Simulated assay, not measured.
Amino acid sequence: YLATFQGSTHCPAWKLTWKSCPPPRVKFFHWLANLERCWTADRLARHGLPHPARCLLCNQAPESIHHLFLACPFSK
């Protein structure tokens, strides 16, 4: 049984994500945001996909997961 998890990563916030009471779609979004897997402009650029140059909400900084959730004036 333990061999199946050999080399897997451990998310420190798994209990906060999966043992809480919000709807499953909110849990899934929190899990993606925690792993920095949301499709922001910086991630689209890494994959060679079209993306806006700046944050669509504030037009002040490049869009990243950190900017959207912590630094953007519209998220405060």
Results as ranks from 00 to 15, higher is better:
Tyr1Asn: 07
Tyr1Met: 07
Leu2Tyr: 15
Leu2Glu: 15
Leu2Lys: 14
Ala3Cys: 10
Thr4Cys: 11
Phe5Glu: 02
Phe5Lys: 06
Gln6His: 10
Gln6Tyr: 10
Gly7Asn: 07
His10Gly: 12
Cys11Asp: 12
Pro12Lys: 01
Pro12Ile: 05
Lys15Val: 14
Trp18Pro: 07
Ser20Val: 14
Ser20Gln: 14
Cys21Val: 05
Pro23Gln: 07
Pro24Asn: 14
Arg25Ile: 06
Val26Pro: 09
Lys27Trp: 06
Lys27Ser: 08
Lys27Gly: 01
Phe28Glu: 10
Phe29Glu: 09
His30Asn: 13
Leu32Ile: 00
Leu32Ser: 01
Leu35Tyr: 13
Arg37Gln: 10
Arg37Ala: 11
Cys38Tyr: 10
Ala41Asp: 10
Arg43Val: 13
Arg43Lys: 09
Arg43Phe: 10
Arg43Ile: 10
Leu44Phe: 07
Leu44Ala: 10
Ala45Pro: 03
Arg46Met: 05
Gly48Asn: 03
Leu49Met: 15
Leu49Trp: 15
Pro50Met: 02
Pro50His: 08
Pro52Asn: 03
Arg54Pro: 11
Arg54Trp: 15
Arg54Met: 13
Arg54Lys: 12
Arg54Glu: 12
Cys55Tyr: 02
Cys55Leu: 01
Leu57Gln: 07
Leu57Val: 04
Leu57Phe: 12
Leu57Ser: 05
Cys58Lys: 14
Asn59Tyr: 04
Gln60Thr: 13
Ala61Lys: 03
Ser64His: 02
Ser64Glu: 01
Ser64Arg: 00
His66Gly: 07
His66Thr: 09
His67Leu: 08
Leu68Met: 12
Leu68Asn: 09
Cys72Asp: 01
Pro73Tyr: 02
Pro73Ile: 05
Phe74Ser: 09
